[in-house]
Design a protein around this nucleic acid. Structure first.
Lengths: 217, 217
DNA sequence: GTCTATATCTCGATAGAC
DNA sequence: GTCTATCGAGATATAGAC
């Protein structure tokens, strides 16, 4: 986790992320979080006061981590196609390493993103990007600017950059969000998971690259 | 809702779908469901015995409705491209009319799809498709067969049909799942929602159609 | 800082009148 | 079938010893 938390706090935050992701903000149990962290239930309240505040700390961490890591490829040098490829690879890797992440964020959105809205100013203020001065909240604009650049350079059709952004992210996320339900209906799919995850990167890149390529007809 | 439920039961199921989607299986409150349905809390137990059984009834309904409606375009006549277009249009419309649907399903998946696994046999047994004899559970295979047909006919590259299915569905769903959080960071987006939803259909179709088109190079 | 024991409270579920 | 009132389980949160 972040450096501003000591070892015990980090253990609690990691355990809480797992439980909140699996069972939701209300469904998660403080006892289960404590068990997973190998600590006593009372310590959770000692360090984070309440379940609600613990959730907010987890959310803040996840939000920073998730969005900060996504922007990295977009700031590197290279052609439009190369950066697009890196962005997709990075994003799929990120989701693959942290399968709990997308569901955690989606749950927050489903509830109307109350914590996101409440803490959004604080997050923006405390997490300025060292290089550009951008905040993680600039992420949508960063991605949009990237696809706008593609249009300017003629690497991409005139497709709406916002639509493109949603399509790319959705194609990456949905694989991890929906895999369990497909695996339940399609025997043998579970065993292919690793191979499918790896193949997914190039599949999405090619779909988007050729799908957005300027057409002559 | 379905015809097997009377008016009161339908009101309860509709209200429960909203609350379960927003707050999850544990987070939803029987009191809130009753309030939303304009009924007394005790009636929920009179009709559905327990919260868990109510959830299962909602899930069964949602699953049937969701997946049945998605398969319709795939059974119609027409070229590969035309059916693809219809499938995407139908799917976006479905999600747009029932924004609670995808989140309800995604939450179930996040918890390991326990009810899905438990009731899958019963659902299949009681909901055979009248024409083909197919069950809704055949949906993944139906979509896969559709993209395999595209490969056979030469309308599509050799791309893995499973990957394609995930990409198309993800591009459709993510727009609705993530819109609130983008709207919170991008001023003015909320007002464009209807226009973006309508434009989304052709955007996805073109991305997939050209992204999968056989390439000469 | 860490634990055990306990207080407080929310919420699902039921009893019973109408 | 529909309601009010209430019980009881289980969870959050706290008190207080060490």
């Amino acid at each position: 986790m972040s450096t501003q938390f000591n070892e015990t706090e980090q253990a609690i935050l990691a355990a809480a992320l797992e439980e909140f992701s699996k069972h939701g903000r209300q469904g998660a149990r403080m006892q289960d979080i404590a068990d997973r962290a190998g600590l006593n239930k009372a310590l959770l309240h000692y360090y984070f006061r309440s379940k609600e505040r613990l959730y907010e700390e987890v959310f803040t961490y996840v939000f920073r981590h998730y969005f900060t890591r996504m922007t990295t490829p977009l700031r590197s040098d290279g052609s439009f196609a190369e950066i697009l490829r890196q962005f997709i690879h990075q994003y799929v890797d990120l989701l693959n390493e942290n399968p709990a992440l997308p569901m955690f964020m989606l749950r927050e959105v489903a509830e109307g993103a109350p914590v996101f809205r409440r803490r959004i100013g604080e997050i923006a203020a405390t997490h300025l990007d060292p290089e550009s001065g951008d905040t993680p909240l600039g992420l949508p604009n960063t991605i949009l600017a990237f696809f706008e650049r593609g249009v300017r350079e003629g690497a991409v059709t005139q497709a709406d950059p916002f639509q493109t952004m949603i399509s790319v992210m959705g194609a990456c996320i949905y694989f991890f969000a929906a895999f369990p339900i497909f695996a339940a209906v399609m025997p043998g799919l579970e065993q292919q998971r690793a191979a499918l995850t790896e193949a997914r990167k190039d599949h999405i890149f090619e779909l988007v690259y050729y799908g957005l390529k300027p057409r002559t007809e």
